[in-house]
């Protein structure tokens, strides 16, 4: 259970982001407590992916602030600082984005070896354990091209976990999967959440969000329209826009 008294591990204040002349995020504020699970829902193009990418410093923000653990994400400038941040917060993408020329095991091992400069044997043992954790011990020598979508996504999760992050970001990680394999991936995330990993998920799986989230954020047009515990947000939405979106999707 999240400890709501402690300082939030992710704290975003009035964050703005434009691409060219288009303002995609128009003042986002949110707090995620350590061990908390938040889900972000909203229509396509509302800036959900951009929000996650900002938290991971993949895109710079224009104004406002993002604080993750002890890092002021908005004022990181050097590669070294960004690397330090990325040890704390790791992102998993919709399209898995595994390295196609590396086996599942190598995919998991690469960043700890080349980025964190940790000893190979140690990393290898940890990577094998992580693959086992996501149910892919038997596939460690398979290349991404030989794995199903769900399997690739679980390798991608293991690859992120290998950095030992404090916060995991999931950007519609089941959107590209067929219904059967969605379950495998959701189970993996469910276990992570149960172990106390702080998770921020952009998702269209409303049942999953309802089950797992402490807080659900509904975003539209670059702002957070409404947020609250899933039972409240899903069953008694206050804003018309939330109601309209939920009636469409449920």
């Amino acid at each position: 259970m999240p400890d709501s008294d402690a300082r939030p591990i992710v704290s975003i204040r009035d964050m703005h982001k434009s691409f060219g002349h288009v303002e995609v995020l128009k003042g986002i504020s949110m707090d995620v407590p350590k061990g908390g699970v938040v889900c972000i829902i909203g229509p396509s193009g509302s800036g959900k992916s951009t929000l996650l990418r900002c938290i991971n410093a993949l895109v710079p923000i224009d104004s406002g602030s993002i604080r993750v653990a002890n890092f002021d994400v908005h004022s990181l400038t050097t590669d070294k600082e960004r690397l330090a941040l990325r040890r704390e917060v790791s992102i998993v993408f919709q399209q898995y984005n595994l390295f196609p020329h590396k086996t599942a095991l190598e995919n998991v091992m690469m960043a700890p070896i080349y980025v964190l400069k940790e000893p190979r044997d140690e990393v290898r043992a940890r990577a094998i354990a992580l693959l086992k954790k996501v149910g892919l011990a038997a596939k460690q020598d398979a290349y991404p091209g030989e794995l199903s979508g769900g399997q690739q996504q679980r390798v991608a999760i293991a690859r992120s976990l290998a950095m030992r992050p404090e916060v995991m970001l999931f950007d519609e990680v089941t959107a590209a999967l067929d219904p059967e394999t969605v379950k495998e991936v959701l189970n993996t995330i469910r276990e992570l959440a149960a172990e106390g990993m702080t998770c921020m998920l952009v998702t269209h799986e409303m049942r999953f969000a309802r089950e797992l989230a402490d807080t659900v954020y509904f975003t539209d047009g670059g702002v957070i329209v409404e947020s609250g515990p899933p039972a409240v947000l899903f069953d008694q939405p206050k804003a018309d826009r939330t109601r309209a979106f939920l009636s469409q999707i449920l």
Binding site: N56, L58, D79, R82, L83, R86, R87, S90, I91, F93, Q95, N97, L98, F99, P100, M110, A111, Y114, V115, L116, A156, R159, S160, M163
Partner: peptide
Amino acid sequence: PKTTLEAAESLGFSRLR
């Protein structure tokens, strides 16, 4: 794919690496 590169970046790889 740009997304492959982005994945590397998100894992802390520098551009050269």
